[in-house]
Protein backbone atom coordinates (compact mmCIF):
# COMPACT_ATOMS: atom_id res chain seq x y z
CA UNK A 1 0.00 0.00 0.00
CA UNK A 2 1.48 3.32 -1.06
CA UNK A 3 1.68 6.48 0.98
CA UNK A 4 -0.51 8.31 -1.54
CA UNK A 5 -3.26 5.76 -1.05
CA UNK A 6 -2.96 6.11 2.73
CA UNK A 7 -3.43 9.87 2.44
CA UNK A 8 -6.39 9.37 0.11
CA UNK A 9 -8.02 7.03 2.61
CA UNK A 10 -7.44 9.54 5.40
CA UNK A 11 -9.11 12.25 3.36
CA UNK A 12 -11.98 9.93 2.46
CA UNK A 13 -12.68 8.93 6.06
CA UNK A 14 -12.44 12.45 7.44
CA UNK A 15 -14.64 13.82 4.64
CA UNK A 16 -17.26 11.21 5.53
CA UNK A 17 -17.44 12.56 9.07
CA UNK A 18 -17.63 16.15 7.86
CA UNK A 19 -20.36 15.11 5.43
CA UNK A 20 -22.50 13.39 8.04
CA UNK A 21 -22.04 16.33 10.40
CA UNK A 22 -23.10 19.06 7.98
CA UNK A 23 -25.69 17.19 5.94
CA UNK A 24 -27.67 16.05 8.97
CA UNK A 25 -28.18 19.73 9.85
CA UNK A 26 -29.95 20.47 6.57
CA UNK A 27 -33.70 20.73 7.29
CA UNK A 28 -36.17 18.60 5.24
CA UNK A 29 -37.47 21.90 3.86
CA UNK A 30 -34.30 22.12 1.77
CA UNK A 31 -33.71 18.49 0.90
CA UNK A 32 -34.50 18.90 -2.80
CA UNK A 33 -32.07 21.83 -3.25
CA UNK A 34 -29.57 19.84 -1.19
CA UNK A 35 -29.81 16.99 -3.67
CA UNK A 36 -29.50 19.12 -6.77
CA UNK A 37 -26.77 21.28 -5.23
CA UNK A 38 -24.69 18.39 -3.97
CA UNK A 39 -25.25 16.78 -7.34
CA UNK A 40 -23.62 19.76 -8.98
CA UNK A 41 -20.68 19.37 -6.60
CA UNK A 42 -20.27 15.74 -7.66
CA UNK A 43 -19.67 17.15 -11.13
CA UNK A 44 -16.15 17.81 -9.80
CA UNK A 45 -15.11 14.91 -12.06
CA UNK A 46 -15.00 17.76 -14.57
CA UNK A 47 -11.49 18.38 -13.26
CA UNK A 48 -10.42 14.89 -14.32
CA UNK A 49 -12.20 15.20 -17.68
CA UNK A 50 -10.44 18.48 -18.43
CA UNK A 51 -7.02 16.90 -18.05
CA UNK A 52 -7.98 13.93 -20.23
CA UNK A 53 -9.49 16.18 -22.90
CA UNK A 54 -6.50 18.50 -23.05
CA UNK A 55 -3.67 16.01 -23.46
CA UNK A 56 -2.98 17.10 -26.99
CA UNK A 57 -2.67 13.90 -28.99
CA UNK A 58 -5.81 13.06 -30.93
CA UNK A 59 -6.37 9.65 -29.35
CA UNK A 60 -9.28 7.80 -27.81
CA UNK A 61 -8.61 9.25 -24.37
CA UNK A 62 -8.95 12.82 -25.62
CA UNK A 63 -12.29 11.97 -27.20
CA UNK A 64 -13.47 10.24 -24.00
CA UNK A 65 -12.22 13.26 -22.07
CA UNK A 66 -14.30 15.58 -24.22
CA UNK A 67 -17.47 13.53 -23.73
CA UNK A 68 -16.57 13.53 -20.02
CA UNK A 69 -16.30 17.32 -20.08
CA UNK A 70 -19.74 17.55 -21.70
CA UNK A 71 -21.35 15.20 -19.16
CA UNK A 72 -19.71 16.80 -16.16
CA UNK A 73 -20.47 20.33 -17.34
CA UNK A 74 -24.16 19.46 -17.78
CA UNK A 75 -24.01 18.17 -14.22
CA UNK A 76 -22.26 21.24 -12.85
CA UNK A 77 -24.04 24.03 -14.73
CA UNK A 78 -27.46 22.37 -14.65
CA UNK A 79 -27.14 21.48 -10.96
CA UNK A 80 -26.01 24.85 -9.64
CA UNK A 81 -28.40 26.80 -11.86
CA UNK A 82 -31.50 24.79 -11.01
CA UNK A 83 -30.62 24.90 -7.30
CA UNK A 84 -30.31 28.66 -7.46
CA UNK A 85 -33.64 28.86 -9.26
CA UNK A 86 -35.32 26.74 -6.60
CA UNK A 87 -33.79 28.54 -3.65
CA UNK A 88 -34.93 31.85 -5.15
CA UNK A 89 -38.50 30.62 -4.71
CA UNK A 90 -38.20 30.12 -0.96
CA UNK A 91 -39.59 33.29 0.57
CA UNK A 92 -40.41 34.29 4.09
CA UNK A 93 -43.72 35.90 4.95
CA UNK A 94 -42.84 39.35 3.63
CA UNK A 95 -42.27 37.89 0.19
CA UNK A 96 -38.57 38.71 0.11
CA UNK A 97 -36.45 36.04 -1.55
CA UNK A 98 -33.57 34.50 0.37
CA UNK A 99 -30.13 35.84 -0.34
Amino acid sequence: MTETLMISIYVFVLATFVGVEIISKVPPLLHTPLMSGSNAISGITLVGSLIAAGEGHAGVSVFLGMIGVIFATINVVGGFKVTDRMLGMFKKDGGKPAK
Partner: peptide
Amino acid sequence: LSNNVLIIAGTLVGTS
Protein backbone atom coordinates in the same frame (compact mmCIF):
# COMPACT_ATOMS: atom_id res chain seq x y z
CA LEU B 1 -6.02 10.38 -9.96
CA SER B 2 -4.78 10.89 -6.35
CA ASN B 3 -6.77 14.10 -6.32
CA ASN B 4 -8.06 15.17 -2.92
CA VAL B 5 -10.65 17.69 -4.08
CA LEU B 6 -12.37 14.90 -6.01
CA ILE B 7 -12.27 12.64 -2.99
CA ILE B 8 -13.65 15.33 -0.65
CA ALA B 9 -16.40 16.55 -2.97
CA GLY B 10 -17.37 13.02 -3.98
CA THR B 11 -17.48 11.81 -0.40
CA LEU B 12 -19.64 14.75 0.73
CA VAL B 13 -22.17 13.92 -1.97
CA GLY B 14 -21.92 10.23 -1.17
CA THR B 15 -22.78 10.79 2.49
CA SER B 16 -25.52 13.25 1.59
